[in-house]
């Protein structure tokens, strides 16, 4: 079984090579606006020992030169235009409590460092929270406002804003203590094959990063750049939506956006990027 899969994937990869590859300058560094240094390569965190990955790399490294260029300037980066909508939302009073985000949290810049440590265990709630679930908790419990839909525009814009103020700071999600059980579930999901194509996250992103899948340059599957502006659909995309897409591409029935499985997977995948800079909103294929 394994032999057939390997030879099938070898055929696919071999077919892709002849017409050239959309290679980036893999040694390029990412400096945004000529001043904000983004760490796109870092030593792999300790928990990845045995995976065969010694250096972790942001998805930016794997993209074509033109795509990389989009992200180097906040004006050229179409994802940044949506942070402006979020700034308006940040300052808008909403809900029964008559507050806005700004009422408690100050300016968006005051939130620097928050995005870098999410997903995170929330003691009071007794669960791991993602930025989305935490924002919605603030909205419903503190503001008395309606929750935003997971991975829809309002929420994605806000996530992009909060990520943008943490850019350049190292991703640092906790995997021990009360978060450990969720992290373990995420890790198990990462290595579980699914679908008619019988592929796990690791098959592509751990064993074949740097190779081509048709004409796509496979990355390590890091999520430090999320929410990401994808050229393919010309809008911001959230982590869980991307998970759904990947699992669907293995031709499997997938978990839903916001499900406990995807929260666990998000925690695990985020931890694989510990040490890379927060990069969202990034620009990807």
């Amino acid at each position: 079984m394994k032999k057939t899969l390997l030879s099938a994937s070898a055929v696919c990869l071999a077919m892709a090579v002849p017409f050239g590859s959309v290679m980036a300058d893999e040694n390029a560094d990412l400096i945004i606006n000529g001043e904000l240094e983004i760490t796109v390569r870092a030593p792999a965190p300790a928990h990845m020992e045995g995976t065969g990955i010694s250096e972790i790399m942001s998805g930016w490294v794997f993209r074509a030169t033109e795509t990389q260029a989009f992200e180097m300037d906040d004006f050229e980066n179409p994802g940044m235009i949506f942070t402006e909508a979020a700034i308006d939302a940040w300052n808008t009073v909403e809900g029964e409590a008559g507050e806005s985000c700004a009422s408690c949290h100050g300016t968006p810049e005051d939130m620097a460092g928050v995005s870098a440590v999410y997903p995170r265990w929330n003691e009071g709630a007794g669960e791991v929270r993602t930025m989305t679930t935490q924002i919605n908790d603030c909205r419903t419990e503190q503001m008395g406002a309606e929750a935003w839909d997971y991975d829809k525009n309002d929420m994605l814009n806000m996530q992009a804003l909060l990520a943008s103020v943490s850019r350049g700071m190292p991703v640092d999600v906790a995997i021990d203590g009360p978060a450990a059980e969720t992290w373990e579930m995420g890790r198990e999901l990462y290595y579980t094959r699914t679908g008619q194509l019988d592929l796990s996250c690791a098959n592509c992103h751990e064993q074949n990063y740097g190779n081509l899948i048709r004409a796509d340059h496979l990355s390590q599957g890091m999520i430090n750049g999320f929410p990401t502006y994808r050229l393919k659909n010309a809008r911001l995309n959230g982590v869980h939506s991307r998970f759904r897409g990947c699992v669907r591409d293995t031709r499997a029935e997938t978990y839903s956006v916001g499900s406990p499985e995807f929260v666990a997977l998000e925690l695990y995948v985020a931890s694989r990027g510990n040490g890379l800079s927060v990069e969202g909103p990034s620009v990807r294929n």
Partner: peptide, 10 residues
Amino acid sequence: VKVTIGGCGG
């Protein structure tokens, strides 16, 4: 301009 087809839902 060569326009490529990606592998991951591309």
